[in-house]
Design a protein around this nucleic acid. Structure first.
Lengths: 131, 131
DNA sequence: TGCTCATTTGCGTAATTATACAAGTATCGG
DNA sequence: CCGATACTTGTATAATTACGCAAATGAGCA
């Protein structure tokens, strides 16, 4: 058992809250968000998404004032996070946005947040569900 | 004009793609994702979300094997990113998850991704829209 | 006012990350 | 095989970030 394990006594109503925590905890992967937490990577991703077709590294790179090797590394980080896919075609490597995975992930998180504490004491939620 | 501005020649079909890029670029704020890009912050947020009520720093902290001051800093980062709200009540400070803002943000991004290249050449999208 | 509790902030340090440049790998065309 | 093109990886460095500890701030209470 890892040392990260929280003390059980910390969870006042473990039976109901733990499932919720772990659901969000499972969906909110740090590596995924870390990949999106850099301005240059967002620029590269936006460009790739905007061009709406598989693109080469060089094509994607020109929206970014950094070395091509840095762009390559950024794209690798996005790939490792499951945000884009890479496929070699001859000399080039074509990167593609994982539109479906991405949209699904964001929507799952939104749903998890919505259902997490439905009927709970959050004022906003009360307002939304009663009004 | 800033030096970050990409060369116009980089955008093959600027009129259609630029709006799309800038929409995603506007929604995908690095600071927001950076805030979610740390394991301890995710743990804190999950715990706060799971407890379904405003919580004090100390209450939230016990899921995290770091100093209380570090927890305070993490919560400040989440607050600055608009993910949680803080409100002082007496000696304590109560933190609350911005459920609505958070869910809305994730859903907006999901929608933007979906509409971004609808009808474009992405194989997945074709499959999804035709099949 | 002085004391205590809860939280934040100052500060130094260790770890991580972004970056440039150089060298390496992979593929294609001659 | 050779050279060119496209990209990735090695390495060093600067910047950022996470962290602990100590001190400061803020609020209640005797």
């Amino acid at each position: 058992m890892s040392k990260q394990e929280p003390a059980q006594s910390c969870f006042p109503s473990a039976s109901t809250t733990e499932a919720c925590c772990s659901l969000l905890g499972r969906l909110l992967e740090p590596r995924f968000f870390k990949a999106l937490g850099d301005g240059n990577r967002i620029a590269l991703l936006s460009r790739l998404a905007g061009l709406c077709r598989p693109c080469t590294v060089s094509e994607i790179a020109c929206c970014c004032p950094v070395d091509l090797s840095v762009v390559s590394r950024h794209l690798a980080i996005l790939r490792d996070a499951g945000i884009v896919d890479a496929q070699r075609r001859g000399k080039e490597v074509l990167y593609t946005v994982n539109y479906d995975v991405l949209a699904k992930t964001f929507r799952q998180i939104a749903d998890a947040i919505d259902t997490c504490c439905s009927g709970a004491s959050s004022p906003q939620r009360k307002e939304r569900e009663n009004g």
